[in-house]
Computed example of a mutant assay.
Amino acid sequence: MESERLRFAPPSLQHQPLMLAAIIESQLELSQFLPWVSSALTEQESVASMKQAIDDFANYQNELRFSLFEKESDEFIGAIGLFIRDKSVPYFEIGYWLRTAYVGHGYITEAVNTIEHHTFVELDAERIEIRTDVNNDKSRAVAIRCGYQFEGIHYCDHRLPNGDLSDTAVYAKTR
């Protein structure tokens, strides 16, 4: 899968060192809202996560994760995934993160639009969600820019990595 500036690659152990380096480089920003960051900072954890992603992708279960590469430089810049919420609908949730140096240049908006098209056309989705912490203004802005409808807030439904109780904003598109 490709977009104007991005190449989407299925999970591969070849990408694992690149992903680990990007997570370590961007951990201060990522760890504000993403609980998995603290457990993704070692070689062993990173390899295990990538092996799980490869298995999930091959078996069409849990999450279909793609590595994002900038086409011009072939630089690994982040990841985007489709969480399979209900195959019988089909219903998916998009999750994403970006290397700090690439934030603010429209890459995630481009990636969301591309994966959304793929999900509706190739996977025959009826519903796609983007869920984000209510205080993650950048992620909420992506959902709005991509035309997702704000459906509401789930109050006190998760803890942030720092332990604070927080709320989740839910955005969605349907066929």
Rank of each mutant, 00 (worst) to 15 (best):
R140K: 12
N136E: 01
I108V: 15
Q44K: 15
T42Q: 04
K138R: 15
F66T: 07
H154F: 12
T100P: 02
A53C: 06
A125D: 13
F150M: 08
F150L: 11
F66P: 06
A143C: 05
Y96H: 07
I80C: 04
R140H: 03
R65K: 14
A53R: 02
I24S: 05
S88F: 09
I80D: 03
M19W: 14
H154Q: 14
E72H: 10
L30R: 09
L30T: 08
I84R: 05
L28D: 13
E25K: 13
I94A: 04
D56F: 08
G104T: 04
K138W: 09
N113T: 03
M19T: 11
T114R: 10
A79L: 04
C146T: 11
D157N: 08
A53G: 02
D124Q: 15
A141F: 08
S49L: 07
A141V: 06
L41N: 13
I108S: 08
L34Y: 09
A40G: 07
Y107D: 07
N136K: 03
D137L: 12
S39T: 03
F69C: 00
S139P: 08
D133A: 10
A141L: 12
Y107Q: 05
D133K: 03
T100F: 04
A79T: 13
D56Q: 05
D124V: 09
K138F: 05
V89H: 11
E43R: 11
I77E: 09
E122L: 02
Y148Q: 03
T100W: 01
D86T: 04
L30H: 06
F33G: 09
F120S: 09
E93Q: 14
Y102S: 07
S46A: 15
N113D: 11
I153D: 01
E126N: 15
S31M: 02
E45R: 12
Q44T: 15
A79S: 14
S38Q: 14
Y60C: 15
S39I: 02
T119G: 00
K71T: 04
Y148E: 02
F150T: 07
G152C: 07
F57V: 03
L34K: 03
T42F: 05
N135Q: 15
D55G: 01
Q32L: 15
E72P: 01
T119V: 01
H118D: 00
E45K: 13
S26V: 03
F83L: 14
F69A: 00
L28H: 11
I24P: 03
F66I: 05
E70C: 00
E29T: 11
A141H: 13
Q52V: 00
S31V: 00
G152A: 06
S38D: 15
E25I: 01
Y148K: 04
S67H: 12
I84K: 05
E93L: 08
T114I: 01
L123W: 04
A111S: 03
Q32T: 15
V134W: 04
S139A: 12
E63Y: 09
